Simulated scan of single mutants.
Amino acid sequence: MNKQMLSDRAAKGEVRELQLLSLEGGFYVARIRFDHGETTLLGEDGQPLRIRSTTHLRDLLLGVTPFPCVLVQQCAHDEMCGVRDGPIAALRVPFSLGATF
């Protein structure tokens, strides 16, 4: 899904959540969740769009109808050490597409 398709679906109220996934290497990938499935935000080359920060995402989606966003980061230490019992959930931090000062 490219930015224009995301903008169109956001205007229709179809976007339930954008998950900004933190990946190794210091970049992020956006996953968009709908009622019936998920997709990745793609660049003009058809590849997953590499996002540098929440500010970069805000700049990319300037003018798009707002929708809920969450920054998702796995805890590599917990995964490597395996000291916790039960499932290990990712850290999920809500944020807004609106400007921050």
Rank of each mutant, 00 (worst) to 15 (best):
43 G>Y: 07
63 G>P: 10
47 Q>L: 08
68 P>Q: 06
67 F>Y: 09
63 G>R: 15
40 T>C: 11
59 D>A: 13
46 G>P: 01
44 E>P: 02
46 G>V: 10
53 S>H: 04
44 E>L: 09
57 L>I: 08
55 T>I: 14
46 G>Y: 03
72 V>W: 02
53 S>Y: 06
69 C>T: 06
41 L>I: 06
52 R>W: 02
69 C>H: 08
59 D>T: 14
43 G>D: 15
50 R>M: 05
61 L>S: 01
42 L>H: 00
48 P>G: 11
56 H>F: 12
70 V>I: 15
46 G>N: 14
65 T>F: 04
54 T>E: 12
54 T>Y: 03
61 L>C: 06
69 C>V: 14
72 V>K: 08
47 Q>D: 06
49 L>S: 06
65 T>I: 06
43 G>K: 02
63 G>C: 13
71 L>N: 01
54 T>H: 15
59 D>S: 09
62 L>N: 15
63 G>T: 05
67 F>H: 03
69 C>Q: 05
57 L>E: 00
62 L>V: 13
68 P>D: 08
63 G>Y: 02
59 D>Y: 03
62 L>D: 09
62 L>I: 15
71 L>E: 01
50 R>C: 14
41 L>S: 06
46 G>H: 13
71 L>Q: 05
66 P>A: 14
69 C>I: 15
47 Q>R: 10
64 V>P: 01
66 P>F: 11
68 P>N: 06
41 L>A: 05
59 D>W: 03
